[in-house]
């Protein structure tokens, strides 16, 4: 127990936290954008799996992981297109379509995986880490935060850019208006359908990227159902964060660290039941719901289809 707070323990903890937290961060940013625009992306888990599978397969065959990540984004957007068409354009129920997308995504990736690779699970090469000069020599943080593959740094930058767009630009204002008062957005001459559609597509791309990160950067292999509920956690984080960047990042990495706690504890010889640790994030979310969610926290028009003629 004495070596609880040693540098290697903390470093492993933070490294693991980033590994698990990063895909969640991508997904919950996407989910935030989608929810702010008034669309509850219930199918995000299925979208992530699609991103994970296609990213993995393309990386494996092309050998370029950038190409893989781009195709993860593409696959995610393709799945999101179903949501755009059914929920945004035709105004169908978001939860039913969302569950449809979720189940379809789970099934289709599992089937394609078996059809393509049989019962073998090929492994990708590990990505080279980039040491940021100077910063990487800080104790603890240097070997965890500042020694990561490029995509991690790009991910952080992307998060910043998206938050800037959502909170400080006209586009962001449109997105939030589409979620809070779509009639007002329509009256101002901007299409609600277009705004929501783009928001959902971007969200799908980000969820796909999150999935791709899991299979390409994180695990190096694709296993059916590998997202294990991360998509649902993303939905909750987006709800609880109320569109605040800080909370999305905090929530994602808190989850990541709580997951990596098990493995880190095992490293120092503390055995703790995996199932107990698995429960922690869900209990935390439930507690957060109880404590924080009594206020006004969701966009007013969330889950309500917009129909111009019904006004």
């Amino acid at each position: 127990m004495s070596d609880f707070l040693t540098a290697s323990f903390l470093s492993a903890l933070i490294f693991g936290g980033i590994l698990t937290g990063m895909p969640l961060l991508f997904a919950s940013i996407g989910e935030t954008i989608s929810q702010r625009s008034g669309v509850l992306g219930m199918g995000i888990e299925g979208i992530m799996l699609a991103g994970a599978y296609f990213g993995f397969a393309i990386t494996l065959y092309s050998g370029h992981f950038w190409l893989g990540l781009v195709s993860s984004i593409g696959a995610g957007m393709l799945m999101a297109l179903i949501v755009v068409l059914f929920c945004v354009r035709l105004g169908m129920d978001q939860i039913v379509v969302g569950i449809g997308v979720l189940i379809f995504g789970e099934g289709v990736t599992s089937v394609l995986q078996r059809a393509q690779f049989g019962t073998t699970y090929p492994r990708l090469e590990e990505l080279a880490s980039v040491k940021i000069p100077g910063l990487s020599s800080i104790p603890v943080l240097g070997s965890s935060v500042f020694t990561q593959p490029w995509i991690v740094y790009i991910g952080f930058a992307l998060v910043g850019v998206l938050y800037w767009i959502l909170n400080f630009t006209n586009v962001g204002l449109n997105i939030r208006a589409a979620g809070e008062k779509p009639e007002a957005l329509d009256a101002s001459g901007t299409s609600v359908i277009f705004t929501r559609g783009m928001a959902v597509l971007v969200a799908g791309g980000l969820a796909g990227l999150g999935g791709g990160y899991m299979s390409i950067v994180g695990a190096g292999i694709f296993v059916p159902f590998m997202t294990k509920g991360i998509g649902f956690i993303a939905i909750v984080i987006a709800m609880l964060a109320r569109g605040k960047a800080v909370w999305v990042i905090t929530g994602s990495f808190l989850f990541g660290i709580s997951v990596s706690l098990t493995t880190s504890l095992q490293l120092v010889g503390v055995e703790i039941a995996q199932d107990l640790v698995n429960m922690i994030p869900f209990i935390a979310v439930l507690a957060a719901l109880i404590i924080f969610a009594r206020g006004n926290y969701l966009p007013a028009a969330l889950c309500l289809p917009y129909n111009r003629e019904a006004r």
Binding site: I82, L90, D93, G100, I103, G107, S110
Partner: peptide, 24 residues
Amino acid sequence: ADLPDDFILIIVGLVLLFMALTEY
């Protein structure tokens, strides 16, 4: 057919989507 059982999930997911569509 050397496919996983999860093929059924595809059918179920599609049923939900087509159901929403026929309703529409």
